[in-house]
Computed example of a mutant assay.
Amino acid sequence: MTPRLRTVLLAGGGGGARLARGFYGLVSEANTLVLTNPGDDFEHLGLLVCPDTDSVLYAVADAIDAKRGWGRESESWSVLAEIERLGGATWFQLGDRDIALHLLRRVGLDAGQSLACVTADLAERLGIQALQIVPATEQRVRTILTTGEGDLDFQSYFVGRKCEPKVESLQFQGAAEATPAPDLLTFLKAGCDAVILGPSNPYLSLAPMLAISGIVEALGNAAPVMAVAPIVDGAAVKGPLAKLMTDRGLEPTALSWVDEMKTLYPGLIDLWVLDSRDQEAAEVLRLRGDRVLVCDTMMTDTTQKIALASQLIEEVKRFV
């Protein structure tokens, strides 16, 4: 019997969550640890909300609202309506089923459990088996955006201001003092065949994880690193990436994304995964000496999610 490959997937936002669902469909072929972004986490109504972690949990459990790309499917809003009636804060929408998960997270944390243990418990409650979903650190890391309107935390920028202010710079508070999740280090120590950077926003979803002290070195020294492009045919698949690149004076293309990733993380990435609609960009990269995989990276249904994960696994086998 062929041993399962050991892979780490960095999953932030919708793209990373969809790819995590793809790897969940291939647990017989790959033992995957999914690392989630803590930079979006914040306290709301007395609850710790972990949007990227929860998106991964819901996507893997086939419980995510596919139309919105976040939150629970078949959601109801009775609690939010009552909060509004009582004059409470409703700018950040939490549905009833979503609140139930946050309440259970609060119970676990208040009982002294680690965030990783609480996340594993929530995954089990959602019926997820044979896939580790681990927040990138146990310490507090928060994304702060410096804009023309001043400093904004991620949720104030993303939800409150709908990504409208021009972003001048980013900082990840607490990342330099934080340490990588113990479960990640244990997984890497036992052996790893590949690290995959999901098709996630490099500034808002991947960077908070990669800013954690020592994590780039740990990942880069453990295995070959491949990165899946979140830009397809000159447009961001989802979210504010194209705007953020424009704010930085960059053209939102797959080639610009590669160049930016090389600037941010020199020498880290061994293989670039581009969509088939970016064949010209792939040829340019190959002429530069880069290793490139071209395939269909759009994941509109479960079959496509699993298909992309399968192609990545086949590429990993060429490294092993």
Rank of each mutant, 00 (worst) to 15 (best):
L308I: 05
V294H: 12
V79R: 12
A178I: 07
C163F: 02
V27G: 10
C117A: 14
N37Y: 01
W70A: 00
Q93L: 14
A176G: 04
Q113W: 09
D278C: 11
L19E: 03
G127I: 05
L268I: 06
R142I: 02
V118K: 10
A227Q: 14
T36W: 12
D52R: 01
G174N: 08
L48T: 08
C295L: 05
K189I: 09
G87W: 12
N221G: 10
T303I: 10
S276C: 05
P180D: 02
I231F: 13
L197D: 07
T137M: 03
A176H: 13
L268S: 03
D275T: 00
E283Y: 05
A307E: 10
R21M: 07
R286C: 06
L9H: 06
E251N: 14
G148D: 15
I231R: 13
A222S: 15
L103T: 09
P199S: 08
L45N: 11
G220Y: 07
I231M: 15
V141L: 01
D52N: 03
E314K: 15
A282M: 07
G150N: 06
A130P: 02
V216E: 15
G239M: 13
Q113N: 04
L5R: 10
A194F: 13
E73R: 06
G234H: 14
A194G: 08
A236S: 13
G289D: 04
I144T: 04
P202M: 15
L57N: 03
A59M: 11
S28P: 07
G174Y: 07
P240D: 03
L264I: 11
K238C: 01
A175F: 06
R68E: 08
M1I: 13
I313C: 04
W91R: 10
V60Q: 07
Q113F: 06
A178Q: 13
D259C: 07
G174F: 11
L206P: 05
L184T: 13
G69Y: 02
S74E: 12
G127H: 08
G14I: 09
P202T: 15
A61Y: 02
V284G: 01
Q304L: 13
L103C: 09
D183R: 15
A17D: 03
A309D: 08
L250A: 02
E124N: 11
Y24M: 13
R288T: 10
I215G: 02
Q304A: 15
L170H: 05
C163W: 01
Q155I: 15
F158T: 00
G22H: 04
L264Y: 06
G13E: 07
R18G: 02
P38F: 05
L19P: 07
L19C: 03
M298N: 02
Q279P: 02
A307S: 12
T53N: 11
V195R: 05
T32G: 00
A81L: 14
T300G: 14
G234L: 14
F154L: 01
T2G: 08
P3M: 08
A254P: 06
K243S: 11
K305R: 14
P252E: 12
G239L: 09
I215E: 03
R6S: 14
V228F: 12
L184P: 11
A176I: 10
I212R: 00
E149Q: 11
P135D: 00
Q311L: 02
P208W: 07
T90H: 04
V232Q: 05
C295E: 12
W272F: 09
D270L: 03
R291C: 09
V118A: 08
F319C: 11
L170M: 14
G220T: 15
G174E: 07
L122D: 03
E260W: 13
T143K: 00
Q139F: 11
W272M: 10
